[in-house]
Simulated assay, not measured.
Amino acid sequence: MAGMTQDGPDATSCHCGLPAPYDDCCGRYHRGDAKAPTAERLMRSRYSAFRVGDEAYLLRTWHPSTRPPHIDFDETLRWERLEVLGTTGGGYLDTEGTVHFRAHYVVRNRPGHMEENSRFVLQEGAWLYVGPLTLLPRIGS
């Protein structure tokens, strides 16, 4: 995997914050053993992919209309924690949805967070990230 691999969570929680080990939670999506069943689960798995530097998964789950050619991981940035603030649609019977989240990080020993309300669509049975509806970068706590 490209990018910076970061310390994993403890054995009872995934990087995404759900109470399951990484291998049983986001790891199965990253390996291709399963597809994220909802927009929120896709967003959580993408956060985990940024955390472990899984460029292939990030590109595979990015809508072709907005997908960059590659991911430039910032080696000085360490993702710390994810908060899901709200969702609309994005469930088992939906074809699109949004997930509002806040991702906390540390860069050059300074804490910060980025907040985004992301749009997702279901295409050929798989949820894909389209892009931000709103992006609110923040520096500091």
Rank of each mutant, 00 (worst) to 15 (best):
S48D: 03
V107K: 12
A36W: 07
L93N: 15
D33I: 12
V130Y: 05
G131P: 02
R110E: 14
P21K: 04
S48I: 01
E83G: 01
A49N: 02
Q123N: 05
W127V: 02
R41G: 13
L77S: 07
T95F: 04
Y105M: 11
R44P: 02
R138V: 15
Y92L: 15
R78P: 09
L122S: 13
M43S: 00
L58D: 04
G3E: 08
P21C: 04
L135A: 11
P111K: 07
C14A: 03
R81P: 07
G125N: 08
G140Q: 10
R78W: 15
T5K: 14
R28Y: 12
L93Y: 12
F120L: 09
R119G: 05
M43Y: 03
L135S: 11
G112C: 06
D10Q: 12
G125D: 10
H15M: 15
H63G: 05
G90S: 03
G91D: 09
E115C: 00
T61Q: 09
D94T: 08
G90R: 00
A39L: 10
F101H: 04
I139Q: 15
S48T: 00
F50T: 00
G125L: 01
S65P: 06
L77G: 05
V130L: 13
G125I: 11
R138T: 11
P64S: 01
L122Q: 11
D23V: 13
S45Q: 06
R102L: 09
L122M: 08
M114R: 08
G17F: 02
G3P: 08
W62G: 04
A56N: 15
M114G: 11
G53I: 05
G86D: 10
